[in-house]
């Protein structure tokens, strides 16, 4: 049976592209806006266009944060956070004030601060992935693969959870992983062929 993939709908993320990509890869995407819709899914994707504070507030208001805590931390079901969705896995963020995240990763979300002042923030566009650790997400992804980023903040913290970086006037976190909790700062659903490969890796082996 094909695995059911719940795309967590907290009112801010870009769900259409993620659902389109999941479908293209032969899986069943299901938008999940309440805890009941999460229960029956095999894996979760926490997509990501939005501001950290609003995102967390909506996850709590819809009861999704508690449900995810139970299903991911408790039952060990895999989750992939994308962009803001990856940042929400951290302890907290300083974007527009101080906000607490899901706290699954020993990390904080901080503003990108390129050493080269000619580099503009947000970091927008295609940039290379530099692997720091092996990950199932990288299977069949060439070393010089480019992925699409659009963000002003990134995840900073415990070196053990950072599996990949990109360079933007210094290292910027690209991918994080802890057990079956995965996150990509880039948008796999917007990164053409290599992005779809990363997504496929999560769906098939994550």
């Amino acid at each position: 049976m094909t695995a059911t993939i719940a795309i967590v709908d907290y009112g801010l993320g870009n769900l259409t592209s993620v659902a389109g990509a999941v479908e293209r890869l032969g899986f069943l995407p299901r938008l999940a806006a309440d805890p009941a819709a999460l229960e029956t899914a095999d894996k979760f994707i926490l997509p990501g266009v939005g501001a950290f504070g609003d995102g967390m507030a909506e996850l709590h208001r819809r009861g999704l944060a508690d449900a995810l805590n139970r299903l991911v931390l408790g039952a060990g079901r895999p989750i992939l956070g994308i962009c803001l969705g990856a940042q929400l896995l951290a302890r907290g963020s300083a974007e527009f004030g101080d906000h607490r995240g899901l706290g699954w990763l020993d990390a904080e979300v901080v503003r990108i601060d390129p050493a080269d002042t000619n580099l503009r923030v947000p970091h927008v566009g295609w940039n290379e992935l530099r692997r720091k650790r092996d990950s199932v997400l990288f299977k069949n992804v060439p070393d010089d693969a480019l992925f699409y980023y659009v963000h002003s903040f990134h995840i900073c913290g415990d070196r053990d959870v950072i599996t990949g970086e990109t360079d933007y006037g210094g290292p910027v976190t690209a991918t994080v992983e802890k057990g079956r909790i995965y996150g990509t700062q880039f948008h796999p659903e917007k990164s053409q062929r290599h992005g779809l490969t990363v997504l496929r890796n999560f769906l098939e082996e994550g």
């Binding site: 009112g11 801010l12 870009n14 769900l15 259409t16 592209s17 659902a19 389109g20 990509a21 293209r24 266009v49 699409y148 659009v150 948008h187 659903e189 917007k190 990164s191 053409q192 992005g195 779809l196």
Partner: peptide, 30 residues
Amino acid sequence: AGKCFVPLAAGGGLRHLDDVREMMGIGADK
């Protein structure tokens, strides 16, 4: 949004946050 796996920005006629919410809801990244 559903078929092109590249970044998508959408605009024209956006006046209120509800218009933006609608655009983001159907798959715009920006």
